[in-house]
Amino acid sequence: MAIPPGQESFQLTGYCVSECTAVSLPPEGITIFGSQLHTHLAGIKVHTRHVRDGIEMTELNRDDHYSTHFQEIRKLKKPVKVLPGDALITQCDYNTEERENVTLGGFAITDEMCVNYVHYFPATDLEVCKSAISDQALNSYFNYMKQWENQNTSFRQGISDNYKAIRWNKMRVQLLTDVYKEAPLSMQCNMSSGDRFPGYWENTPVTPVLKPLPPPPRTC
């Protein structure tokens, strides 16, 4: 995934889908007691949602004033029980107003991540549960940019080069946002050994939230 330049607030979402927790967590579930939210320099806001059978539960963790210079493992005020079949959705907001070029996902501090490191018991074999947009959906976006927007994207180029080839405007940014929200996922549901849990993890549907949490009550 990537973040276009010049954005006051651009959101990326990472999913730990119910299909993964269903095959990786014990029948009694796990208890999360700590959480470390993580992005790099462009991150300004991070929170993780907890969904069960389409119903949004109490949030797992939130930082509306996130700074990569002040990261900490936070003990949750109340431990959270996550059962097999539950989903976790981590949403990160980024500010790239001072950047002239697209920001790619990666390990460098000038690249970006959207991560929640959770601390829980009992120990399980689940090590990594993370999502990316499916290659098919992303290639369709790049093809649209070439055919209809006259951008220098090409199936001969890699993903990073295609992102960098786009001259970003409001419409192209909005279309990318829509693709990220609607496109199926390529999942990694991995054991500590690095092997994936049994299942088909390509073109996994985005977790539906049929009943979101109501907005917090106003205090004034």
Results as ranks from 00 to 15, higher is better:
Ala2Met: 13
Pro5Tyr: 14
Pro5Trp: 14
Gly6Asp: 04
Ser9Trp: 10
Phe10Gly: 03
Gln11Asn: 07
Leu12Lys: 14
Leu12Thr: 15
Thr21Met: 02
Val23Met: 05
Ser24Gly: 00
Ile30Arg: 12
Ile32Met: 09
Phe33Ala: 02
Ser35Trp: 13
Gln36Ala: 13
Ile44Tyr: 13
Thr48Cys: 07
Arg52Asn: 03
Asp53Ala: 12
Glu56Tyr: 07
Leu60Glu: 04
Asn61Glu: 06
Asn61Lys: 07
Gln71His: 12
Glu72Pro: 01
Ile73Thr: 13
Ile73Tyr: 14
Lys77Val: 06
Lys81Ile: 11
Cys92Gln: 09
Tyr94Asp: 03
Asn95Gly: 02
Glu98Asp: 09
Arg99Ile: 01
Arg99Val: 00
Glu100Phe: 13
Glu100His: 12
Val102Lys: 14
Phe107His: 09
Phe107Gln: 07
Glu112Met: 15
Asn116Val: 11
His119Gln: 10
Phe121Tyr: 14
Asp125Lys: 08
Asp125Gln: 09
Leu126Asp: 02
Ile133Trp: 03
Gln136Glu: 06
Leu138Trp: 14
Asn139Cys: 01
Lys146Leu: 08
Trp148Asp: 04
Glu149Ser: 11
Glu149Phe: 15
Glu149Lys: 15
Gln151Thr: 06
Gly158Asn: 11
Ile159Ala: 04
Ser160Tyr: 15
Ser160Pro: 04
Asp161Asn: 04
Trp168Phe: 15
Met171Thr: 12
Val173Met: 03
Gln174Cys: 01
Leu176Gly: 00
Asp178Leu: 11
Lys181Ile: 01
Pro184Phe: 09
Ser193Gly: 04
Arg196His: 10
Gly199Gln: 04
Gly199Asn: 04
Asn203Ser: 07
Leu210Tyr: 12
Lys211Ala: 01
Lys211Thr: 08
Leu213Val: 02
Pro215Lys: 11
Pro216Glu: 05
Cys220Arg: 15
